[in-house]
Design a binder for these strands. Structure first.
Length: 673
DNA sequence: ATAGGGTTAG
């Protein structure tokens, strides 16, 4: 209170009523309280001023000051003359303001009490109550009051009633309600109201009924910035990024000016499209408008640049940002993770946690995705501890991330533990556990989980089928695999992607049905690409099939001119058959074309250090010892009857190698739990 | 009435 007394000491006279009202209750509860008290010394507020203050409290969520004002109203009730309609109406407005206050602040018991006690109610009172319940998650009650309002013979609903109910319809299941409201709007002549049209557009898109959303948009007689922004963001949310951006461009060239929210929506469309050129143009516009330093804009820009693979541009924005929050930090973490900078992602995450920044479930699920693609096993477990400590262990995204993290790090049992522990599971949870078993070669168990998934009534996605096909491929379940492909199309009406076909090719190839795999590719409804030629060629490598191998290699070289794979695979096939001349010719061809193979590295983490090795390694400090042990092991293997398979003699087996060991980021003990 | 980030396959 000392700051308040300071303010009052500086004032020679009590603050004017006008000043008090302009302070409202906004930034400083104490100032407003004291000024109210001091104003009472002079003259009490009028009803209109009190109403204004109360509804300001509601807008700003200041229930403390609001209920004090309520107390003062109870003590000194607004005068009204029962015979004078104007005075009755004025008193009624004050009560509506109080109702609005309690609804906005989520004090719904008090709101209902107010509502029940009111002598007079009108549409505004009903709308306050309805939106109070809906905005605070009590959907059933909110809809219940809405139905009473619609069915009432005394009260009439209006546009605001419709839009507030529509704003609660943001899930797939809500589409029936949206349609009902839509019908209600048409029947009562509200469908031409721009706010109703805007709300309908938004809700249809949120319920993923993008066709209906677009139709409402198209048929609207009058459109404003909100209308356009609703459609642009709705299309982007439904992954129609191209259409979204097209609409944005159309709007940009129209008489309407996009606003801040429009730019955010358009940027998210650019991210989804990886539309660097358009995204950078919008970046330019944000400078022109002076909104380039807004945190949300910065996050959207960073996301756009990183999804386009331009990590440096994203990093530049990140570095120059004045403030950061969970979203912007997540954007940059994901950017690192998905552009091949896994170590940087981990380093940054550790820094964020160590600096005591807030982490949220989204950030955690993002970082969990990088473990297992690199070497840091111990850290994943530490993040799990963090999850428990922060109380995120019931978040579905986080738990899905944990399942994947453990399975990628080889801890299948831990994945199962997390999965069993989850009280809420979604499609991704099931996909993740199926993929975990597929990854570990337990195809039958993966299939069992799929059965369980169906029993529980969870709809599979295209990724479910990808994991299932992967599982079948590794377990040699050829017929099952073909069945899945068929049921995917026929029972679930999904359109298989090239990845699905590639998995079938892999499956056929591994089983030795090379001719069938080749025919399968030729009959595909899609134009074959690298994804299917590569597994066919790989299978030819296993079976030493020169004819089909050559065909697949040619196709692959055509589809991916910079890939070394066709040459290396063919060279290996030739050498496995003793066709040394052809082998040499193939190697020469590769060199002439100038394609290079990236050197393969294997590594192991020992006591927080990574030791990396390449073929014929001569650089590792303990190389001699390693080779001694290798020779010893080889001796043992030979003694037990192992015969080396010349099929796997590599083109590069004579290449001079290099190896190194590095300090492993010093991270392993970095997260203090 | 419109708004920035997250998990699954390879």
């Amino acid at each position: 209170m000392s700051s308040v007394s300071c303010i009052f000491k500086k004032l020679s006279a009590p603050p004017s009523r006008h000043l008090i009202l302009s302070w409202r209750c906004s930034s400083n509860f104490h100032v407003a309280m004291s000024s109210h008290a001091s104003a009472r010394i002079c003259t009490p507020f009028t009803e209109a001023e009190l109403g204004f203050l109360v509804s300001s409290c509601g807008r700003e969520g200041n229930i403390r000051l609001g209920s004090c004002l309520h107390a003062s109203i109870v003590k000194n009730p607004p005068f009204f003359d029962i015979g004078d309609p104007d005075s009755r109406r004025r008193a009624h407005v004050t009560y509506n303001c109080l109702l609005h206050l309690y609804c906005k602040c989520g004090e719904l018991d008090d709101a209902v009490k107010m509502f029940d006690d009111m002598l007079l109610r009108d549409t505004v009172s009903w709308n306050s109550l309805i939106s109070g319940f809906l905005k605070h998650g009590h959907l059933q009650l909110g809809f219940g009051y809405f139905k009473s309002l619609v069915g009432s013979s005394i009260y009439r609903f209006d546009c605001a009633s419709l839009t507030s109910v529509l704003s609660a319809c943001d899930r797939l299941e809500a589409v029936r309600t949206v349609k009902m409201i839509h019908a209600l709007a048409i029947l009562n002549g509200y469908e031409k109201e721009i706010t109703v049209g805007n709300a309908l557009t938004t809700s249809y898109f949120k319920c993923r009924s993008f066709g209906s959303g677009m139709r409402v948009f198209d048929e609207m007689m009058e459109r404003n910035v909100v209308t356009w922004t609703a459609a642009i963001s709705g299309l982007a949310q439904n992954e129609f990024y191209g259409e979204s951006l097209k609409l944005f461009v159309e709007m940009y060239h129209s008489v309407l000016s996009p606003n801040y929210l429009t730019y955010l929506s358009a940027l998210s469309a650019c991210s989804g499209l990886q539309a660097l050129k358009e995204g950078a143009q919008i970046h330019g516009v944000t400078w022109k408008l002076g909104i380039q330093s807004d945190l949300c804009i910065e996050s959207a820009l960073m996301d756009m640049y990183s999804k386009c693979g331009c990590m440096e541009d994203a990093w530049q924005i990140f570095e120059s940002a004045e403030v950061l929050d969970e979203v912007s930090m997540t954007v940059i973490l994901v950017g690192f993770a998905q552009n091949g900078f896994e170590e940087e992602a981990i380093k940054m995450f550790v820094k964020i946690v160590k600096a005591g920044n807030n982490v949220d479930p989204n950030m955690i699920s993002a970082i969990l995705g990088v473990f297992g693609t690199d070497t840091s096993q111990g850290l994943g477990v530490q993040v799990h501890s963090l999850v428990i400590k922060r109380g995120f262990d019931s978040n579905v995204f986080v738990n899905n991330g944990l399942i994947n993290m453990y399975s990628k790090c080889g801890e299948l049992e831990e994945s199962v533990k997390v999965f069993d522990w989850m009280t809420q599971k979604n499609q991704v949870s099931w996909n993740s556990i199926i993929a975990a078993f597929a990854r570990h070669g337990d195809g039958l168990k993966a299939l069992q989980f799929y059965e369980e998934m169906r029993l529980q009534g969870v709809e599979p996605t295209d990724i479910t089928f990808l994991s299932l096909l992967h599982a079948c491929s590794h377990a040699g379940l050829l017929h099952k695999g073909m069945e899945f492909l068929e049921s995917m199309e026929k029972a679930y009406g999904m359109c298989p992607r090239m990845e699905h076909y590639a998995s079938i090719v892999d499956m056929l190839g591994r089983a030795g049905f090379l001719e069938e795999a080749k025919n399968f590719i030729e009959e595909l409804p899609l134009k074959p690409d690298v994804l299917v030629w590569q597994p066919l060629l790989g299978a030819c490598g296993i079976y030493g099939d020169i004819d089909i191998g050559k065909y697949a290699a040619d196709q692959l070289a055509h589809a991916a001119p910079d890939s070394p794979v066709p040459y290396i695979s063919m060279a290996n096939i030739y050498s496995s058959r003793g066709r040394w001349k052809e082998r040499a010719r193939t190697v020469k061809k590769m060199k002439d074309k100038g394609v290079k193979k990236e050197t393969g590295i294997s590594w192991i983490e020992i006591e927080k250090k990574i030791h990396s090795f390449v073929v014929a390694d001569q650089m590792h400090p303990q190389g001699d010892g390693v080779y001694d042990i290798l020779l010893m092991l080889f001796g043992h293997m030979r003694d037990e009857g192992y015969v080396p398979d010349s099929v796997f003699i590599s083109v590069y087996s004579n290449q001079e190698g290099r190896g190194y060991s590095t300090d492993y980021l010093n991270l392993s003990n970095s997260i203090v739990i």
